[in-house]
Computed example of a mutant assay.
Amino acid sequence: MNVELSLSLDRRKARGVTTNESGRFDLARREIWDGWDIPESRGAFRTQVRDEQARTLITYNTSPDLPFDRSINPYRGCEHGCAYCFARPSHAYLGLSPGLDFETQLVARSNAADVLRKELTSKRYKVAPIAIGTNTDAYQPAEKERGIARACLEVLAEFNHPVAIVTKGALIERDIDILALMAERGLARVGVSLTTLDPSLSRKLEPRAPSPVRRLQMIERLSSAGIPVRVMTSPVIPGLTDHELEALLAAGRSAGADAASWIMLRLPREISQLWQDWLAEHEPGRANKVMSRLREMHGGRDYDPRWGHRMRGEGPYARIIEQRFATTVKRLGFATNTPSLRTDLFALPKQAGDQLSFF
């Protein structure tokens, strides 16, 4: 892969980050120069989606920071292009850049539903809520044609399997028919990420994600259908979006969200430099303040990956955000303890030819 450090605005129009530097696992890292200084016209980065045949789908974790121990991701990479996305470094495992490759070179796991069915049918499988969209958004634009997330949701519904979805994608409204029925049985919950109410800032931060107003409409439509919705004010960006915390929570509550959560901006691995490049281009006047606040919460570093620390940080500023969140949640009447998703309804669907189906 070529190292592309300086890309024109035309080439990266409507994209989240400014560079496409090679990932840390790319051993063929190289720069190409032909000896000429003649400007070369190159096309814009176009979204490309290739298919992958997944061998396994459910990913397990033992992190004490997460409220779930398993998740599925129908896609690798995400066209929403959020500049701050903590999942960008995962693209390096594919030999691709966490930069623009992450939002333009996508992988669709086209057999995901079949693999999921096989894994749920295993005699060794023990049911617990599955999370969708925790790494990359299952309802990004590619889903409109591929329908992989919906196919997986149909499998989970057949098995009466509990599911929690995190998304920014308005395409989730297409699946309200399935989610509403699952929610009636206590099997489904959705989290909608709301970073800012400023449409101009949102367009720069999350160039191909729905606008803030559209996401609030998503919350309203999902909750009106009886689907419990959590408004996720994540990430909180110090010096950039932190002043909006109360307004974000109030907007989510007014739209129908019954619960709320927050996570501080995280800058693991390649994200730190990508983020600082974004600040230099889009918010140069706030760059020092943003990075100073983050380093203040992480012992002078851009990021501290320790469990129990990485999601929130520590110190006076982190405590202030936590107190503001808790006070506002209480004032607005958000639920502080939401009911657990049900696991007692899980059952293998009847198959054609099952003898017991006669009884």
Rank of each mutant, 00 (worst) to 15 (best):
N2H: 13
S6L: 14
G16V: 04
T18M: 09
E31Q: 14
E31V: 13
W33N: 10
D34S: 15
D37H: 12
R46T: 12
R50S: 13
I58E: 04
I58V: 11
F68R: 00
D69S: 14
S71V: 07
S71T: 09
P74Y: 05
G77Y: 09
H80P: 07
H80V: 03
F86R: 00
A92Q: 02
L96W: 06
L96Y: 13
S97F: 00
S97R: 00
P98M: 01
P98E: 02
G99Q: 08
G99P: 07
L100N: 09
D101C: 01
A108W: 01
R109E: 03
A113R: 11
L116D: 08
K118G: 09
E119M: 09
Y125R: 07
A131V: 08
A131I: 02
T134E: 15
N135R: 13
N135W: 14
Q140T: 04
E143K: 07
E143R: 05
R150S: 07
A151L: 10
E154N: 06
E158D: 15
H161Y: 12
L171M: 14
I172A: 03
D175A: 13
L179M: 10
L181Y: 08
M182H: 11
A183Q: 04
L187W: 11
L194H: 01
T195R: 12
S202G: 12
A209Q: 11
P212D: 06
V213S: 15
R214I: 12
R215M: 03
A225H: 02
G226L: 11
I227P: 12
P228T: 05
P228D: 08
M232H: 12
S234F: 06
V236E: 09
I237R: 07
P238A: 05
G239T: 00
G239V: 01
L240C: 05
R253Q: 03
G256Y: 02
W262H: 05
M264S: 08
E270A: 08
Q273M: 11
L274A: 13
L279K: 05
E283N: 05
P284S: 07
G285T: 06
R286C: 07
A287M: 10
V290K: 03
R295V: 05
E296G: 13
G300F: 04
P305C: 02
R306S: 15
G308K: 12
M311R: 10
M311F: 13
G313Y: 14
I320R: 15
Q323S: 15
F325S: 02
V329H: 00
K330R: 14
K330N: 12
N337V: 12
T343G: 04
F346K: 09
A347L: 09
